[in-house]
Amino acid sequence: MFIDVVDLRNFYAQPLGIVARRFVGQGIRAHWNEVRGERIAGIGYTTPYLGIFREDAERCLAFMPASQGVVKWPSNRAGLASLVDETDLPLTDAAVDRVLLVHALEMADDPVRLLREVWRVLSANGRLLAVVPNRRGLWARVDTTPFGHGRPYSRSQITRILRETLFAPKGWGEALFVPPVQRNWFLRSAGAWERAGPTVLAPFPGVHIVEASKQAYRAIPVRREKRVLVPRLEPALAPSPGGAVRTSTSSFLGAGVPGQGR
């Protein structure tokens, strides 16, 4: 179940949300550092992160699920956000080059169906970038942040669901090694936590950031066809000496001379 959009907006306006936006945004940018001329769609609550691409991308669109709600974005320009059914996007096939998922996969009632819809709207060389709460991280255990809601994933679970929906994981990243503590004095050390995290707290980041490419074709396992046994001889009707009809296979044996059966 998706979190209400007002709660999401309020979280990112708080000091802890600002820290989360900073470090998750850095992780996203590390994967997508060149998006010039490309079309990007964000699904979930992606507006804190889509802004970093607006100057370079051809267009950025924010699709917010109906059960979450929608807010105007950007606030000072023509709106680029829309309320949608996340499993039935208002886009044609292969309409966008990249899709960003934030607060989406773990919230979706049917994540497989969501990813199949993402596959549909991505171009042949399209790429997906998903920010997903880590099942082992502290952020997934605290429900005072959006990352503590929905279903968190391990890396193997993310890999499995991506492959099931015809995506191939291409790159991994992590973010939010800093504990989710709502104290300004503690958040001053957030940068040190984030720098030391990959070495000291490697298994316990708050989120996984996984990039995946769209697979245009799926391998189908080869199965040996079953052999069907066909009889070499089939019954045939042939006249008997007394004028009755009897069953014979003589025509198949090459001995169809009248009277031979007497």
Rank of each mutant, 00 (worst) to 15 (best):
F2K: 08
F2D: 03
F2N: 10
I3F: 08
D4E: 10
D4K: 10
V5H: 09
R9N: 13
N10P: 03
F11K: 11
Q14L: 10
G17I: 00
I18M: 04
V19T: 06
V19G: 06
R22D: 14
G25E: 07
G25A: 09
Q26C: 05
A30L: 01
N33F: 05
E34W: 15
V35K: 01
E38M: 05
G42A: 13
I43R: 02
G44F: 02
Y45Q: 03
T46G: 03
L50P: 10
G51C: 07
R54E: 13
A57M: 04
P65Y: 04
S67C: 13
G69M: 07
G69S: 06
G69H: 04
S75Y: 04
S75D: 14
R77D: 12
R77T: 06
A78R: 04
D85Y: 04
E86W: 02
A94C: 07
V96I: 02
V99T: 03
L101P: 12
M107G: 10
A108W: 13
D109E: 15
D110A: 07
P111R: 00
P111E: 12
L114A: 12
E117C: 05
E117M: 09
V118C: 12
R120E: 10
L122N: 05
S123K: 12
A124I: 06
G126Y: 01
V132Q: 05
P133G: 11
G148N: 00
H149R: 04
P152T: 08
S156T: 02
I161E: 04
R163L: 14
E164D: 08
A168Q: 09
A168L: 14
E174D: 15
P179Q: 03
Q182F: 14
A190F: 01
A190Q: 06
G197F: 13
G197C: 11
P198R: 07
T199M: 13
V200P: 09
A202H: 15
A202S: 15
A202C: 03
P203M: 02
V207D: 13
H208L: 07
I209C: 11
E211Q: 15
K214W: 05
I220V: 15
P221M: 14
P221C: 06
V222I: 08
V222Y: 05
R224S: 09
R224P: 01
P231Y: 00
E234D: 11
A236I: 04
L237V: 03
A238Y: 11
S240T: 12
A244E: 14
S248E: 09
S248V: 07
T249W: 12
S250C: 02
S251L: 06
A255P: 01
G261R: 10
G261E: 15
R262K: 03
